[in-house]
Design a protein around this nucleic acid. Sequence first.
RNA 1: CGGGGCGUAGCGCAGCCCGGUUAGCGCGUCUGUUUUGGGAGCAGAAGGUCGCAGGUUCGAAUCCCGCCGCCCCGACCA
Length: 563
Amino acid sequence: MRQSQYFIPTLREAPADAQIPSHQLMLRAGLVRQVASGVFTWLPLGYKILKKIIEILREEMDAIGGQEFLMPALNPIEIWEQTGRVEAMGDVMFHIKNRDGLVLAPTHEEIITYHARQHIQSYKDLPQIWYQIQNKFRNEPRPKSGVLRGRQFLMKDAYSLDSSWEGLDESYRKHYEAYKKIFTRCGIKFFIVGASSGAMGGKQSEEFMIESDAGEDVCAISDSGYAANLEVATSAIEPVGRISENLNLEEFPTPNAKTINDLIEQFGLPEDRLAKSVVYIIDSKPVLILMRGNDELNETKLQSAFKTNTFRPAEPEELLQITGANTGSIGPVNLKTSIKIVADNLLKDANGLTSGANKDGFHLKNIDLTRDCKIDEYLDLRTVREGEPCIKNGSPLRIVKAIELGHIFKLGTKYSEALGARFLDSEGKEHPIIMGSYGIGVERIMASYIEQNYDESGIIWNKALTPFDLHLIGLGLSKTPEVKKACEKIYSDLTGLNLEVLFDDRDENPGVKFNDADLIGIPYQIIVGKKNLDNGKVEIKDRKTGERKLIDLNILKEAVLNL
RNA sequence: CGGGGCGUAGCGCAGCCCGGUUAGCGCGUCUGUUUUGGGAGCAGAAGGUCGCAGGUUCGAAUCCCGCCGCCCCGACCA
């Protein structure tokens, strides 16, 4: 490809709207242009890279027996109503204004299940792995970070159909392995975390992440290999336990202490003998939740423990009514009304605790949870903190931001039951198909790769994703016919070896060419200039290391093949 | 949706507070010329409904009102 004819609008400066490195570089290198918030055009060079990623996805999906579909973005709303997801998706789903009954699909469980219902009848038809690489539409409230969160984006979504739970385990495992291969082949440093399956339903889910400040998820990871989304992460931190001296309950005035920190500072109390009480209204019923000291309640954990997503913190008036006190003086003992009390596991059967007295301006000390109140249940409710020992081998946890590249789910029968996708087993009995769903954000792979592989000059592609194998750079072409002639020969020789070569044949200054080449980031640059050519040599520059080698023209082919 | 910021030439910005020539600057673009191993020099040129719509005023990029768009933080994120 001759660069003088190829549309690569590079930019000297990063547009002010782009904040993160990958977004800036994708704009500067001429890979994408933004059309609206969260909506992008892929320019030829960017699309070429995207197609390389898509090919890797195809190969690995095909390798586990996947069959590629192409499903429509326009979906009948009816089918979404049957699974209850019109409501569940809410504003995230785009609705068509001038054609009743159509929506833009944010994902494709419904359509997959629709086809399964049509044509899967027997256990003999199973298992199946169906996938596609297709544009998704989601009305994100706040698109951000370039292609990392868009309103229209490419997703590789796959769905497994099985006749048994063991079959689902196997399909899930195949995807897990395929995903590892995909990200490894793309050259991405990733980790896998256990995740919350949330409102998606199902019993198991894992996310494929890369560590990045540009990410929106937060994970706890340690050197032991432990990694979990903060929503579900746990640690091996010691429970508070019991102290031997079990004194009587004692009320004491704390007029200026509203927070746990106030108590620590004003009364010199140890944090792990303090119990913070919060009241939530869960499924319309008040529940007092006891946490150790400053531990943060994890709402995702609360959601799974109570198996509901209708909960909220109690309002101030409700607090007073329920407990008899305002924020800062609430505790498990002497509650005004009798309500359910749950406590975090760390507080299991603890004594010697201090908590609110349910009387404004007073706290109680020497609380014994086994003696002074009734804890209905101990649950894992806390959010782990930086530095806590990991449950695998005790090494300290790090809390990092992460970009979610892929997510795999064991769905179960939620969609097959809702849509009536059933099969007959070997005894002629009818069952709902057991499903899994597996997604990868295709553009996120590119942005994540760039986040991990750039320097001050630009992007650094690897062999798997690079848009061209080689960047041939001719210097002073219009003034030095011998350089031009040599470049033309090299171009045709290398192209003849089935290599993809981007030939910078533009009449530009060397500096412009070098800077563009470094910005675009093709792994190897072949630089042809008069001085070296007079000695029968050309230069090969390694983009990543910056290393330059002078190569005899007559062994250039071999040298290139050995790169 | 809450908070903050921004919208002036293809890109990056100044001007706005304190209204008043022909709205500037750098980069890029075009023409000519010189240059050709790290964004080169000289000379010339083109390019703007100052986001949109109302209002105040003799006069609005500038002041007021409404709307739209974009970015960031938060909420949200099957």
